[in-house]
Write a protein that binds this DNA or RNA. Structure first.
Length: 493
RNA sequence: GUCCCUAUCGUCUAGCCCGGCCUAGGACACCGCCCUUUCACGGCGGCGACACGGGUUCAAAUCCCGUUGGGGACGCCA
């Protein structure tokens, strides 16, 4: 029985960010690999910015990626899971408050009567004078009499940072030593009784028995504060692993407003969830098996190794993502591909109701090796569901602007009218025979035919496409194309 | 300003901890060739990096120091 307990603790103040997804994935992989528990905790203490819609959007992102949690809040009709809840930070305030007051009683924290205005002014002044903006310690050593004299003036609670050195034994960064002099006494509870992030995370991680805190390295410095709090509160210190962040293609922080910051943007763009999972996993992790880059979610669980995490930030590379997507699309069965692509076809306004599931699976198979994203299916197959609305201009010039163009299509049409059986293989043989008989290369007939049947110059293999289209449609479309060449060339713009 | 983290091809990275096997390996991208009914796929080849400067050493991508670049923390945000 594994005792590993890890968590993802997003603040529901936006969609699921690509960086959060990375952190979640590594936590999830570690949990799944060790047989431990993966916990979702919503850090919604900032009521102004946290909304239920965001919480749902975030969960939808996780669901799409296939990152499921063993313990977490109630969501979308699902009841809360787990024995150490509640899993919304906002519902744990009472506990946070109690722990803050416990520290106060134990002398590990103290009352601070400074007002926000005073503190803000002091910080600004320090910044202006290029001094480290730290709390001056005004209320650090107030006597009982002085405190009593404050009457019922509101106060915040500050953690008392003791002199010494704090060491974070980070699984990724190695031991990180920080002199406690670098930290001032930080506030853990606001005058209104609301907990501050540092207190809330530590209390929650401590009481939820988190064993490994795997998160973004923007928290590395905070980790020292957290370690001090863990110790002061008497909780077992978790192990830490601070992951490098995900940068955009220019090497900047992946801004929320950038397309792709929301993992669901990628779904909308036609990427498979397994692609995102695979790609993000490679951002900072390399398998022992050298050269291997393609993994399913399950294979990642097997291969993942927390010791092989990199230390530096990685830029997001769309081209690599596209390549991985193509690879994963090829690994789908035709039926799986069909099922994933059908909603996209429908959204594009194509009516697939006239086709059987088997036919649609064949169609999917014909495109499988060609489409970089699921969305490309539309351009590759729309002509199956509707007559080509027009012929690609450049292709018309190249293929049909020849004296014998109509004649060639006529040959093809006659051939197609009599091929038996109506199969891609037989159609291929017929085309080859036609080419040979007339002493032409195969392309001499294939290219004009493609244009006649699809209106385009690129698409699925011609013979498969021809079979799928059916003899009647093929002969009819060839006829139209011949008519177009004979009468319509000059009217086409 | 102080402190912390980080730095190998354009990009993701292997190698670094335990110096020599590194004339630095792979992948994506790019270029060329081959395959080929288009587009892809696939195959072959090419281009292409140890940020800089000092040490230590017979020997440094690998160890040490500094510089520079990037990121982060220093909030009654999370």
């Amino acid at each position: 029985m594994s005792t590993v307990r890890v968590r993802i603790a997003p603040s529901p103040s936006g969609f699921l960010h690509i960086g959060t997804a990375k952190v979640a994935l590594f936590n999830w992989l570690y949990a799944r690999q060790t047989g431990g528990a993966f916990i979702l905790r919503l850090e919604d203490t900032d009521a102004d910015r946290s909304t239920e819609e965001f919480a749902e959007a975030m969960c939808e992102g996780f669901r799409w990626l296939g990152i499921d949690w063993d313990e977490g809040p109630e969501f979308a009709g699902q009841p809360e899971k787990g024995a150490l809840g509640p899993y919304r930070q906002s519902l744990r305030k009472e506990l946070h408050r109690r722990e803050a007051h416990r520290l106060l009683e134990e002398g590990k924290a103290y009352r601070c009567f400074c007002t926000k205005e005073e503190l803000d002014a002091a910080r600004e002044e320090a910044m202006r004078e290029k001094r480290p903006p730290r709390y001056a310690g005004t209320c650090r050593n107030l006597s009982a009499e002085q405190i009593a004299a404050m009457g019922d003036r509101p106060f915040s609670i500050r953690f008392r940072v003791e002199p010494g050195e704090t060491v974070i034994d980070d699984l990724i960064q190695g031991p990180v030593k920080v002199d406690n002099k670098e930290f001032d006494d930080f506030i853990i509870l606001r005058p209104n009784g609301e907990p501050i992030f540092h207190l809330a995370v530590v209390v929650d991680d401590g009481t939820m028995k988190i064993t490994h805190v795997i998160r973004g390295d923007d928290h590395l410095t905070n980790a020292a504060r957290h370690v001090m709090l863990f110790d002061a509160l008497g909780y077992a210190r978790p192990k830490f692993a601070h992951l490098p962040m995900v940068l955009d293609e220019h090497g900047k922080k992946y801004s929320k407003r950038l397309h792709g910051a929301n993992v669901l943007d990628w779904r909308d763009d036609g990427y498979l969830p397994e692609t995102l999972v695979n790609y993000v996993a490679l951002l900072g992790w390399t398998p022992v098996e050298e050269g291997r880059e393609l993994f399913t979610r399950e294979e990642l669980v097997q291969a993942f190794d927390i010791d092989r995490l990199g230390k530096s930030a990685a830029k997001f590379d769309l081209k690599k993502l596209q390549w991985i997507n193509g690879q994963h699309i090829r690994r789908l069965t035709p039926e799986e591909l069909r099922d994933r692509v059908l909603p996209i076809l429908h959204r594009a306004g194509l009516d697939t109701s006239g086709k059987t599931p088997e036919w649609l699976a064949h169609m999917a198979a014909a495109c499988q090796e060609k489409i970089p994203t699921l969305n490309d299916i539309v351009a590759y197959t729309d002509f199956f569901f509707a007559e080509p609305s027009h012929y690609e201009e450049k292709a018309v010039k190249k293929q049909w602007d020849k004296p014998d163009a109509a004649e060639r299509l006529e040959h093809i049409s006659q051939t197609m009218a009599s091929v038996e059986p109506w199969s891609a293989e037989a159609i291929k043989v017929a085309f080859e025979a036609l080419a040979e008989r007339t002493g032409n290369p195969l392309g001499h007939f294939v290219h004009p035919a493609r244009l006649a049947l699809t209106g385009k110059s690129v698409g699925p293999g011609l013979f498969e496409l021809t079979e799928l289209l059916g003899r009647d449609a093929v002969v009819e479309r060839l006829g139209r194309a011949i008519a177009f060449i004979q009468h319509g060339m000059e009217t086409q713009s």
